[in-house]
Design a protein around this nucleic acid. Sequence first.
RNA 1: GCUCGGAUGGUGGAACUGGUAGACACGCAGGACUUAAAAUCCUGUUCGCCCUAAAGCGAGUGCGGGUUCGAUUCCCGCUCCGAGUACCA
Length: 928
Amino acid sequence: MDYQFREIEKKWQRFWADNQTFKVDNHSAKPKYYVLDMFPYPSGAGLHVGHPLGYIASDIFSRYKRLKGFNVLHPMGYDSFGLPAEQYAIQTGQHPAITTEANINRYREQLDNLGFSFDWSREVRTSDPGYYKWTQWIFMLLFNSWYNLDTDKAESIESLTEKFGRAGSEGIKAVCDDDTSSFTAEEWREKSDEEKQVELLKYRLTYLRESTVNWCPALGTVLANDEVKDGFSERGGYPVEQKKMMQWSMRITAYADRLIQGLDTVDWPEPLKEMQRNWIGKSVGALVKFGLKNRPEFIEVFTTRVDTIYGTTFLVLAPEHELVESLTTPDRKAEITNYIDQTKKKSELDRMADTKTVSGAFTGSYALHPVSGEQIPVWIADYVLAGYGTGAVMAVPSGDQRDWLFATKFGLPIVAISDAQVGLDEQADPTKEGKYINSGIINGLDYKAATTKLIEKLEELGAGKAKVNYRLRDAIFGRQRYWGEPVPVYFKDGLPQLIDAAELPLVLPEVDKYLPTESGEPPLGRADNWKYRGELEYELSTMPGWAGSSWYWFRYMDARNEGEFASKDAIAYWKDVDLYIGGSEHATGHLLYSRFWNKFLKDLGYVIEEEPFKKLINQGMIQGRSNFVYRLIDAEGKGTNTFVSAGLRSQYKASAMHVDVNIVENEILDLTKFKAFRPEFENAEFILENGKYICGVEIEKMSKSKFNVVNPDELTERFGADTLRMYEMFLGPLEQSKPWNTNGIEGVFKFLRKFWKLFHDDEFNFRVSDEEPSKAEFKALHKIIRKVEEDIERFSFNTSVSSFMICVNELTDLKCNKRQILQDLVIVLQPYAPHITEELWTLLGNQAGTISVANYPAFNAEYLVENEFSYPVSINGKTRLNLNISLGLPQPEVEAIVLANEDILRYMDGKTPKKVIFVKGKIINVVV
RNA sequence: GCUCGGAUGGUGGAACUGGUAGACACGCAGGACUUAAAAUCCUGUUCGCCCUAAAGCGAGUGCGGGUUCGAUUCCCGCUCCGAGUACCA
């Protein structure tokens, strides 16, 4: 029989499912290896060809590792809470659980069609109460923890109350709110329970805080930044305003430093690490208090260059700074108010585009330099951001370009502070070289000494201290939505209390509509009689999308455990993820939050490793490749029913129109299918070139509206899963973004048929020979054994596919059907094309299902040893010809052979050679 | 602006530590088989010049320099494209 991929693939997919071939144990004598894919959100659209790219790569890697003798954990699940299901529910009234279930079933079917070796017995769904029970449990752990800076880890809140009871707030170093109070042990003990709870909330790792949200009154809901475009809701186009709301937050900032340090210990792509570093945005500097003339308050600034403090010639506050109003003198009132109004009017886009224009206004007040005591004018300007540092800066125009521009524009003094500064008439010079001048107590010192001395002095004066600042904000954890994990909290006397752990999971209640209540409360406010112990109010917001995905890799280790999020044994065995494959769009979201929760769980002793994902690979985005037809336009500008081929387009007046890529092959339009594409084209006419209609091409995002979505199901139906798997890999390097193009898939299909042919005679009877293979046959085999091993280890899957083609071409030329060769080749190809290889493996007489755990063939270098090499010989670096020379010969003898060669002598044109470069096994270069 | 990627035939891409640039495919052109089509097989295919052809010559990995016997690969300076980020004090 010819290669019957449809039957073969169906047969083995059923076999693997029936026999649980890829089910993996938590105990094994083999070493463990954990390969994880970023689990998908099951959207209603199903998978397109871009989705499986990473899954195919991880599946190849997993299968390869099994052949290499590892116990491989390779699970899959669904990140099934999320906005699209909720929006669909709002429109249709359909419960999100129902649509989610339907979508998951569709995803599963599509995934199964591709022959992945997932252990489905470990499947997780974040929206399953059995799963989110543990998401809620982790939330409770966070609530019951604080971050102790002395031990540099999270600890149970009891260790804090114990400290308070013993010595009061004295000496506590914690990551906490700014407004914690000071008290003695005695005062602590005398506090009421309520007072204690209020104080503790300032330390908990998850806590309530007032934060600003995008509130859309018309939709009655909070919107994500993504859903807001230029101040209007993306859906419906209603105005959106900023509203303050009490929100649950997570103190991820406590881990800022460890999140940066940990990056040095993981094998991740450098750009991704850099993104996280920038996102966390650590800057080391100092907080400095500037007193105010004739007033008790002070302005606090953050600076990374405290050494330049003597160059401060003015202070700048953000227009939103709380002291602006009281600092404005009556004569400046009008100007300042005007400036603030203008800032408010500017959209973020305007402010972005406008970095070159300098603007600001003088408040009329003066601050006092903390060291020199000089008077310094206080200005406001929108280049200072309220949200970063303290919302105020000390302006040093000689050292900072923005300050320099500001000073130049408003005629403020520019004072040099270092003997190394040059060109201050032209621009600021932020150099740290040289010795300080005009700088009081640090004159003559260098950068390091000056910084140390100033911080000491400021601390002595009570006017400042060293401080590390982060760009990273605490993460808001509440969402005013329905389709998410309920927060396991109820309120008693206005204070949040955890529900009893035994009552987990707190199940998502049923509601009549998935919209906010009339009074503006989240959808959970609609649930009937939904009260803790029948009387106390539950928290009505739910958790954000990232909650369930921040720990899911642990659940796979022990997915059916009802008593723990994963057993100690399972965690001790699997430890962490060895290889994680997914898109780079999660760089500053999921991947940061996951690292945060992992570190937290480690602090409390629940997990072993500091970092969750040892190695990470980003697969590139698969872009869409759209096809166009060109419709002629008549004199009135209306589209006609005549279409012109792309090459002739310029001769006519025509407009481009997307056409379904599935009715185009190699840019040639299938005219019959086009006529059926839409009723109006039934009588379409065409202006052809060379008898064909050629379509235009453009690279765009893959989307339904552009008719460029390619569905994997259609391709597996036409060519089979093995072909699709190999073709997706053949497309190019895994990490590179590339447009989808089905054009080359035939080449891979032909390859698999050729491979099948090796095992069969011309009548397609299975026929292999037990003869001893020839040297050339062994060589072809051992080349591929080594090549695939090297390629997989460096995630270069595209080059292996090429090498397989070369190998099969060679064996076909050799007419090789030797069992000794083919059996090993089947194993080597198995990770890439699991179905055809399973079939041939059993035809070769092996037991069904055992190829997955066969041994990867050992590479034997002896088969590749050559005695001769065809050396490229170049004259002055220009390759002229090839000479077969024995590899054993030393340089002098090789030189003699080369210089005796007539053709070489001809190329040398009678000149004497100056030098002969000889690289054994590589090249010979004659320099004349 | 900053940070990080990238640029190689008509197309996707290969060349791993500096050593024959264009592997492997797609497409295209020509041919074989066939009543025909599909499938399959064979030949050619970086560009330019010369030519019936063979052979030959020259150029060539975004651009301009450099190091080297030798550079797609290393260094310096640009251009363009993509991603991330947004005045971070």
